[in-house]
Nucleic acid binder design. Structure first.
Lengths: 361, 361
DNA sequence: CTGTTAGCGCGTTCAA
DNA sequence: TTGAACGCGCTAACAG
């Protein structure tokens, strides 16, 4: 049916279709949506015809209200344009789409925004809420966040975190320590001994685990890491860049008076996150140090494009999209008792991808 | 209020709150949402207390049904993990959040998926639908897509495209030709004369415009582009990479028998899109050609990280996030008559960002 | 198989 | 100011 006139014209409702097809609204509902259709072929056809004629589109909200729940999940990230979150989101959206459920994305860059986002999310009574957010774990809003989510679970919802086990909810995770040990071993085996370590916030669980793994191996190998060589920062390109620049300004990097490691300077950068590694590489160049030549660099995560920087980044591969998928599975799956702290490992032995940024020396 | 027991317990409704506060459900509604609250302070307090005590969260769907519309918009992209779409999405989500409206993201990688996504989107009666998708413009589904969207508009909805003016809907756009001319001029002025051009699909409007702009300037400068030097492909990292690899395999790139430009080989790659440029750089290296040294490279878009590849990419800056924002403005703004083909320019004179990938030669 | 009817949770007249 | 009542569009018993 063509548009009648210029004025806004409300979409056809189920009732309109039923009337047009000369059947009850219930019958119309059955053919247009109903699980086990048990309608006579004749009325089925009539309804379908009426529906297409009227260009009927079900009102998802009305359906949601009537059913008490909606075929949707909400995904909270701190920054979609971060390749890491983008990759996870990709997995989430795709897995959700396969099951016919849509995902609403919310960005929450601060603890406050995150709490607000969760409240709004709960208001839509989704099947599940996926929090792919990992920072600000020690924020004052945390208890509120937790209680909000617990309430949500109590009402039948499902919450899951991605790469964050600080809160008592199921979490999709990977064996950070294993991956960390692998890179550290590679660093040592490749002949590096004066690393800078770029880590995340102390409250950041994944960062902690990665750091522990790295330190473990380094210690065992007799590599003493200078405390000043360990830099804090959020997991972002900018902070990775900034950390190296700071060190550069302080003369810590290149051989010389006051440089790290007894004035010998650093020979490698172990970033506990890919974007930090990428930022670091650019910063190294700004300090006259060629990544992959003067200084070896490793990342963690294997985001897309980590293979496209130059030299290509040697990093720990994490199945980002699969993690998003696992989160959807978790949220949509049936729940067991005592699942609260359940860990969903999608990768128990992350491999390190060898690329050009860490040649033997 | 704490969770009572282990069983799923439905969230408090407005009625629960009203009862708890000893007021009518209407009054409760007024204080909890109402535009111009005209309730006695006393009942206001009572309701608020009851609400917090019961941990009331409005049911967004019920509100949507009652009001006939929901404070949401849907955003369709073909791939969130593509930095370009990610950046645009970032702008969309942020702008929407500022106005308290949430965005549902849908990925549609094929024309068929896109149509389905639009149908699903319409079902949620959102304030607007933003299509940040630009490929498959000549798909058979296109008429259906158009009519679906027209229907949606007829019922009061608002559709807007981003960087795609092929369909009769408002579109956020930039002056592709101006930007293209700028890069081409830079190419010429920098001493390059044997370019490879990596363009998008022929039906891709932006690609067309960029190509036209580039060719224009090249022609005027007397640079004859070898037809075999122009490669088609989707705007993706992979296809940029593949195109160069293909040329490499055919011996077109490096000087020698059968190479482009009378056997002299190419001296530059003009990619009409950043991700293609990035893929191309990696492919060039695979062919023994050092980007920014043996071959100059330019992109288009200035996605994040285009500054972090090496050498940093010289490219045309597009205000990606602002484009997303403009799309939101368009969808949420008041509509005028004859807006159908309205163009919303967010950038009428894109600048080229000079970086290391295109040194003078 | 099909139609009636009662909700779902909330916004919103319309009286009081 | 407040409350009762109706309606939004649809699903889900419950009768026919």
């Amino acid at each position: 049916m063509a548009v009648q006139n210029g004025k806004a014209q409300s979409p056809a409702t189920l009732m309109d279709v039923a009337r047009e097809a000369n059947v009850s609204i219930a019958t119309a509902s059955r053919v247009l949506n109903g699980s086990t259709r048990k309608v006579r072929n004749q009325s089925y056809v009539k309804v379908m015809e009426a529906a297409t004629k009227l260009n009927y589109r079900p009102n998802a909200y009305a359906q949601a209200v009537a059913k008490g729940t909606a075929p949707s999940i909400v995904l909270l990230v701190s920054d979609i344009s971060d390749p890491y979150f983008a990759a996870v989101s990709q997995g989430v959206v795709r897995a959700a789409a396969e099951r016919g459920i849509s995902v609403t994305i919310g960005v929450a860059a601060t603890p406050h925004e995150e709490l607000e986002a969760v409240r709004k999310a709960v208001a839509t009574r989704p099947r599940g809420i996926i929090v792919s957010e990992s920072e600000y774990l020690d924020a004052p809003e945390r208890p509120e966040l937790e209680s909000e989510l617990k309430q949500y679970e109590a009402s039948g919802g499902r919450a899951v975190f991605v790469l964050n086990r600080n809160l008592p909810f199921p979490a999709v995770d990977v064996a950070n320590d294993v991956g960390a040990r692998a890179v550290a071993k590679l660093i040592v085996d490749s002949g590096y001994s004066r690393p800078v370590i770029l880590k995340g916030d102390d409250a950041h669980r994944s960062s902690q685990e990665r750091l522990a793994g790295v330190m473990d191996v380094l210690d065992a190998a007799g590599v003493a890491v200078d405390p000043k060589a360990v830099a804090n920062g959020k997991f972002s390109r900018t902070e990775g860049y900034a950390a190296i620049m700071r060190m550069g300004r302080s003369g810590l990097l290149s051989p010389g008076e006051g440089a790290l490691y007894d004035g010998r300077g650093v020979d490698s950068v172990i970033a506990l996150n890919d974007v930090m590694a990428i930022g670091a590489m650019t910063a190294l160049r700004a300090n006259g140090l060629e990544p992959g030549k003067d200084v070896g660099v490793t990342g963690f995560g294997d985001i897309p494009y980590s293979a496209d920087v130059y030299p290509p980044l040697t990093t720990v591969h994490l199945p980002l999209a699969e993690m998003g998928q696992a989160a959807v599975d978790s949220v949509l799956g049936k729940r067991d008792e005592g699942d609260d702290d359940r860990l969903i490992y999608v990768q128990s032995a992350p491999d390190v991808v060898l690329r050009g940024s860490l040649p033997r020396r």
